[in-house]
Amino acid sequence: MKLNKSLVAVLLMAFVVAFSSCEDTKKKDQIKLEEQEAEMAKAESDAKEAEMQEAQANEEKMKEEARTNSIAGKAMASRDLDTLVIALKAAGLADMLLAEGDYTVFAPTDFAFSELKKGTLEDLIKPENKEMLVSVLQYHVVAGKMRSEDLGKAIDAGNGKAELTTVKGDKLTIMRDGDQIVIKDGKGKKAQIVLGNIDASNGVIHEVSKVLMSK
């Protein structure tokens, strides 16, 4: 049986329309899928960025807390160590006492600096005398954390006195004077610990009554 040409044309047209409709649906589905994938990728990227920013913020917070709780940070917060902080900055040693590590610092108080011969401190903090200032300040720092009880144990183990090696490489001698622990410098001058065991994230501070000199 022969199909009418008009019927064939109608059927062909219907097929074309159906095929086109199907293709349009596929294209729309593909576009929708691509949009969803793009949204998911953006959401994932945004989540990673937020996570990274949070990690960076936490890292900065930890660093700030470490700086605040460091030896330098504790010294800056003390009302008795302003002169020492000025000296540390002039010597470029503040960063060392902000960094990670374990140090014991015998920190001269403002009063201790005031007892130096007139003009001594002013001369020390001059740029041309930086090397000398560094040497003086390093003489107050010992590697390793030694709280008062540790100093006492070292004195007892040494039958009444013990030597400590400073980061400068020179020696300090610690001993007892009654109930007090005192530090004797290279000139034979003795300084008392007026406030001990100021714990920091990178060591401990003992405020002392004298500025120590190696020679």
Rank of each mutant, 00 (worst) to 15 (best):
H206R: 02
I183G: 00
I183F: 06
K42I: 14
A43R: 13
V167H: 00
G158R: 07
K27E: 14
A38G: 04
K187E: 11
T166P: 02
V105C: 00
K118R: 08
G119E: 10
F111C: 11
L93W: 01
M132G: 14
L81D: 01
L121S: 08
K2Q: 15
L172T: 07
L212P: 03
M13N: 15
G196K: 04
I198L: 12
L7Q: 06
A50L: 10
A38Y: 13
I205Q: 01
D170Q: 08
E149A: 12
E37W: 04
L84H: 05
F106A: 00
Q180P: 10
L33D: 15
Q192C: 10
K118F: 10
N159H: 11
L172A: 09
L195N: 14
V16W: 02
K5N: 06
K89Y: 04
A14V: 08
K2C: 05
A14E: 07
T25C: 09
S6G: 13
L121M: 12
V194E: 07
V204I: 10
A90T: 09
E49L: 09
L3T: 11
K2E: 13
K117H: 03
L133V: 05
M96T: 04
Y139P: 00
S148I: 15
K161T: 11
T104F: 01
K215Q: 15
G144P: 06
F113C: 13
D185F: 03
M40P: 03
D102A: 12
E35L: 14
K89H: 04
L137V: 05
L88R: 01
T165R: 05
G160T: 05
E163H: 10
K126G: 07
Q30H: 12
R79A: 15
D123H: 06
V141E: 01
G196V: 10
F106G: 02
G188E: 07
H206M: 03
Q56V: 14
D177Q: 07
I174Q: 01
L11F: 11
G203Q: 04
Q180K: 15
A47E: 01
D170Y: 02
D80K: 14
D150H: 08
P127E: 03
E37D: 12
A38N: 11
T166D: 00
Q30A: 15
L88N: 05
A75I: 03
I205W: 06
L121Y: 04
K171P: 03
E39W: 13
A66W: 01
V167I: 07
A87M: 05
V204M: 04
L151F: 07
K161Q: 13
M62E: 04
V182N: 01
G144T: 06
C22S: 15
S201I: 02
K32R: 14
